[in-house]
């Protein structure tokens, strides 16, 4: 499929490489540490586990207009998109290059920071740490959060979440720490995966096989109501790309207002929300939707994206 055909494809069905290619302008994507480099995991062979030439993540750079956009796109089909040493290093490498590009842009265009400001986009599809090389994966997560803080005040990081595995485990907080989050209703975002919650709380509290429960708890619509997702879009590659382009077209100082965490004021707002969690003690996400003014909570999961956006009431931001 070429770039133009990809635009009308389902984002959910796309491989990581196609997502990477299609999110940036046509014909501009250059993969870095791609399959030809054969940067496979040094740890999986010993365990008798299959390796992949890209270690489950596509990394590279493209353009959106004049702006270099550094891309990370995770492949859920390979060990659930989980992060090991190489996968993590590739992610960190992208951050390093983007930060370097920012310094370069400041040097070359001191008067036009907006137009040439680099960006990072992460197409998440992962359960977090790869257990086969868990310790290295854990340390890589810490490194990526450290680099995320380095981007603050310099360049935007946008999360796009609409792939099958969703975005869980340690990558759940990496996504939370970005500047803006784009999701489709099919996107999933959280920290603890459904199976672990079931194991911890019992099947009566959380049935991990109940797909609509998982969608209500971690899906794009719920996260949109909670303001944990900033842009909700259809499950179409062009819809994600349009959302990304629109975010990057915003002045940086406006875009960063989409953040949920990353300052004292934002943390205080989240503490207020946590007090509400304790007071409401919801049995289901629907209880929270109702609290935020969605009287017809039962109808929301069935609505198309456009209809949903027209009627959904969201939590009001304080900051």
């Amino acid at each position: 499929m070429d770039w133009k055909e990809l635009q009308s494809a389902s984002f959910l069905e796309c491989t990581a490489r196609r997502r990477a290619l299609a999110l940036v302008d046509e014909g501009t994507f250059t993969e870095l540490a791609g399959p030809r480099d054969r940067m496979t995991s040094p740890h999986l062979p010993e365990l008798g586990e299959a390796v992949s030439f890209d270690d489950g993540v596509v990394t590279g750079v493209g353009l959106v207009g004049e702006r270099p956009v550094f891309v990370i796109s995770q492949e859920g089909r390979f060990i659930g998109g989980a992060v090991g040493e190489v996968h993590g290093a590739k992610m960190a490498g992208v951050f390093k290059l983007a930060l370097r590009a920012y310094d370069e842009a400041c040097r070359r265009h001191p008067d036009e920071p907006e137009r040439y400001r680099p960006a990072i986009v992460i197409s998440f599809e992962t359960g977090g740490v790869r257990l086969h090389e868990a310790n290295a994966g854990l340390l890589a997560h810490a490194e990526i959060m450290d680099l995320m803080q380095d981007t603050k005040g310099k360049l935007p990081v946008v999360a796009v979440i609409g792939s099958k595995v969703g975005c869980f485990g340690g990558m759940g907080f990496v996504a939370a720490a970005t500047d803006a989050v784009v999701m489709s209703p099919q996107g999933r975002l959280g920290l603890t995966g459904p199976e672990v919650i079931e194991q911890e709380m019992g099947k009566d509290e959380f049935d991990a096989s109940d797909k609509s429960l998982i969608s209500r708890t971690t899906g794009g619509k719920h996260k949109y109501i909670m303001q944990d997702c900033n842009v909700l879009c259809d499950d179409r590659v062009s819809a994600f790309r349009d959302a990304l382009c629109a975010l990057l077209a915003m002045p940086y100082e406006e875009l960063v207002k989409y953040r949920r965490i990353g300052s004292y004021a934002l943390v205080k707002e989240q503490m207020g929300l946590t007090a509400l969690a304790a007071a409401l003690n919801p049995f289901d996400a629907k209880d929270v939707w109702q609290y935020f003014g969605n009287g017809e909570a039962d109808a929301l999961p069935e609505l198309g994206t456009e209809e949903f956006l027209a009627v959904a009431r969201r939590r009001e931001r304080e900051v």
Binding site: T15, A16, G34, P35, R36, R38, A50, V51, S52, F53, E75, R77, F78
Partner: peptide, 16 residues
């Protein structure tokens, strides 16, 4: 000079 195809999913393969 070269090409790549496929994803190493379970029950699947990639080839250079």
């Amino acid at each position: 000079e070269w090409a790549h195809s496929g994803v190493v999913g379970s029950g699947d393969m990639e080839v250079l």
